[in-house]
């Protein structure tokens, strides 16, 4: 019996190693390709390990499409969206979780219906026209402002605040703390990890946006890193995969590093986005 269990464990370990390798293989092959000299890229049959350690591909990716600027734009966009969505989500979530007011269920329903209405995708034509009339095309305003609030973050924060005992609020009232002080000094400190999880997820969401930045920016100065990938594929017309993979890995790096650095927050955030704790 004990021996059977050990065999089972070994088989499972072997299977786990196998599937992990398969799933991460595209990333691994991208790394090795990104270190190949142009002369090695099209060697046939393809070799896995590069003969060289050709860092120049990364420099070329930066130079050929102004990638540094594009990554800076993505960073600005993602940080602003992350902060806006999280703060506005906390405020509106708090309104729905801790207050009874006239019209609250109507307002809640009005917010609900936007949950599956990604305007930047399915209403992109009129949304673009709004940007034109505001003279926001090709600016940071267009990249950030439409995304500053969302139903998802509001619901998540509401859902979370509802799990915090009512007694705390009553106690704060007795101590003479107003509702804003209660939010800032009690509710938010008690919700740090949920807020952290939501913030990281909103950052990744913004960093990975594609269609909207593609439509609303029209210069190498204002485009974002994701759009850079398309530019890179077009510029490298001979398909120098070494340079393209170097660029791809740099565009991926911020979110991947963030993912590994705060994985616990991440998973918590992802799961609580849809599930009651």
């Amino acid at each position: 019996m004990k021996k059977n269990k050990m065999i089972r464990t070994i088989l499972i370990e072997a299977l786990l190693i196998f599937v992990t390798i398969i799933i991460l293989l595209p990333l691994f092959l991208a790394v090795t390709m990104s270190l190949k000299k142009p002369s090695e890229v099209f060697v046939y049959p393809p070799t896995i390990f590069p003969n060289s350690f050709y860092i120049q591909n990364y420099i070329n990716a930066f130079n050929s499409i102004n990638l540094g600027r594009l990554m800076l734009n993505s960073l600005i966009m993602s940080v602003v969206i992350m902060i806006g969505k999280t703060i506005f989500g906390i405020l509106s979530g708090y309104a729905f979780s801790n207050f009874r007011f006239k019209g609250s269920s109507l307002l809640f329903a009005l917010l609900f219906v936007t949950l599956f209405m990604p305007a930047e995708l399915i209403m992109i034509v009129p949304l673009f026209q709004i940007m034109q009339s505001l003279h926001w095309v090709n600016t940071y305003w267009a990249l950030t402002v439409p995304f500053l609030a969302s139903a998802t973050t509001t619901f998540l924060m509401r859902q979370h605040f509802m799990t915090i005992p009512k007694e705390l609020e009553d106690a704060a009232k007795i101590d003479g703390a107003g509702p804003m002080r209660f939010l800032l000094e009690i509710l938010i400190p008690l919700s740090k990890s949920t807020i952290g999880g939501v913030a990281v997820i909103n950052f990744v969401y913004a960093w990975n946006l594609y269609l909207w930045p593609l439509v609303v920016t029209n210069s190498n100065e204002m485009a974002t890193a994701q759009i850079g990938l398309k530019m890179l594929t077009n510029v490298e017309s001979t398909s120098n995969w070494g340079v393209i993979m170097a660029g791809t890995l740099m565009v991926l790096a911020p979110t991947l590093i963030l993912f590994f650095a705060v994985q616990k927050l991440f998973v918590r955030g992802i799961v609580t986005t849809g599930l009651k704790e």
């Binding site: 799933i23 990744v204 960093w207 990975n208 759009i227 398309k230 565009v251 963030l258 993912f259 590994f260």
Partner: peptide, 13 residues
């Protein structure tokens, strides 16, 4: 951790 990682990857990447 390793198998969760593709979450961070964008559709363009």
């Amino acid at each position: 951790t390793l198998i969760f990682a593709p979450y961070a990857i964008s559709p363009a990447v």
